[in-house]
């Protein structure tokens, strides 16, 4: 089942360069990255600090655009999109999970998870149905009316996962999703990603930890803004 949909490339990155200008100096965060990711892949991106992992994730997630090179997501060229169209793509196709959870503190869990549907213009009834289902899926049905600060770190990250999933995104992007969690809670979160993957979800995550990366089926290593290696985890074990 895992390989059934994988003929189709969901995202294609060609020669992507990202350069930040800081006064007189230029920081080359990405220096020519090319990459294809197919539907239902489970990818870990690794690399030393400052190697460009987050920059790459931001470009994949349409939060940022490359300085040069092309990026097409589901057949659409991202470079040509307006700010508002990018927001729509993030809303419909991308589900973000952040290291620091990034929930809205004043809103309760239900509202936090409902938010992408609100920005997507989904009618109230359907919003409620989908939100409840997403929250049940991460096992927090009894916490819907709680605020984020009343939950543990692991629970918060589960809320973030529910929010990422609520609008059925094409890709779930997770930048160090276990970075702020103890190893036991981190394992729980990773098991959740495994389940998502086996139900057909495309997942890209950034991590520093090998045992987290082990969950993925493909590992891409970055160094100094370039791809150092790109291997299927089976191959690593085979080698």
């Amino acid at each position: 089942m895992n390989n059934r949909a994988s003929d189709r490339s969901i995202l294609t990155i060609r020669d992507v360069v990202k350069t930040y200008q800081m006064g007189e100096t230029y920081v080359h965060a990405l220096r020519g990255v090319s990459l294809d990711i197919r539907s239902n892949e489970y990818v870990a991106i690794m690399g030393p600090s400052g190697s460009g992992k987050s920059t790459l994730m931001n470009i994949i997630g349409c939060l940022d655009v490359p300085t040069s090179g092309t990026y097409s997501l589901d057949g659409q060229m991202v470079a040509e999109k307006s700010e508002s169209e990018l927001a729509e793509i993030r809303n419909r196709m991308i589900g973000f999970v952040f290291q620091t959870f990034n929930l809205i503190p004043r809103a309760d869990i239900f509202h936090n998870v409902e938010l992408p549907l609100i920005y997507g213009g989904v009618p109230r009834q359907e919003r409620r149905r989908r939100t409840e289902r997403a929250i049940e899926q991460v096992g927090l049905a009894d916490r819907m009316k709680h605020r984020p600060n009343e939950l543990s770190g692991g629970q918060r990250q589960r809320v973030a996962i529910a929010r990422a999933l609520v609008f059925n995104p094409s890709i779930v992007l997770a930048d160090e999703p276990t970075g702020n969690l103890d190893s036991k809670t981190g394992d729980e979160i990773m098991r959740m990603f495994d389940e998502l993957h086996s139900s057909g979800q495309t997942i890209i995550l950034v991590t520093h930890e090998d045992h987290v990366a082990q969950h993925a089926l493909r590992t891409i290593r970055l160094r100094d803004g370039q791809i150092e290696s790109d291997v299927r985890n089976g191959d690593v074990q085979a080698a």
Partner: peptide
């Protein structure tokens, strides 16, 4: 930060 979160999950500038 809240604005960042809202934008990341799909809020348009207009929203």
């Amino acid at each position: 930060r809240e604005i960042g979160i809202r934008k990341a999950i799909g809020a348009k500038p207009r929203s």
